[in-house]
Amino acid sequence: MSDETPEFGTSDVAPGDEGSEAGIATYLVGLGLALLLTGVSFFIAKTHLVWGPSIPVALIVLAIAQMGVHLVFFLHITTGPDNANNVMALAFGVLIVLLLLTGSLWIMFHLNHNMMPMDQLMRMQR
């Protein structure tokens, strides 16, 4: 199976497989970091200690950090040479997700901005 690694590290690793030694320690570290980031997210959402408009940005940054933690410690997507194919697929996926999200938000924001308010539009149609 995937344990038969040749001498130098050009073999591949399936996503989710953790090289040779599969340890509980990785999952424990991942769980601890994820719990920490989740706790901070829920705390920040409710608190009045930080400047209000910065909260959504902070939440998005924390969410991206936690997704990274999940990818590394739970899915074992790392930067090792045996993981290059998995990382390339992930990078392409992230590219498409970013295009989709920013493209939709950008276009729809300008559309909303340039459109007449809905009640005026309804009045014109009568």
Binding site: A14, A89, G93, I96, S104
Partner: peptide, 28 residues
Amino acid sequence: RIIVGYGFWIFLLSDIIMFSAFFASYAV
């Protein structure tokens, strides 16, 4: 095992792309 895992990984990424479309429509 590597081929199956890689193929399933690509499926998961496409599933995430589908979710990102729902996220975009929610955000809008």
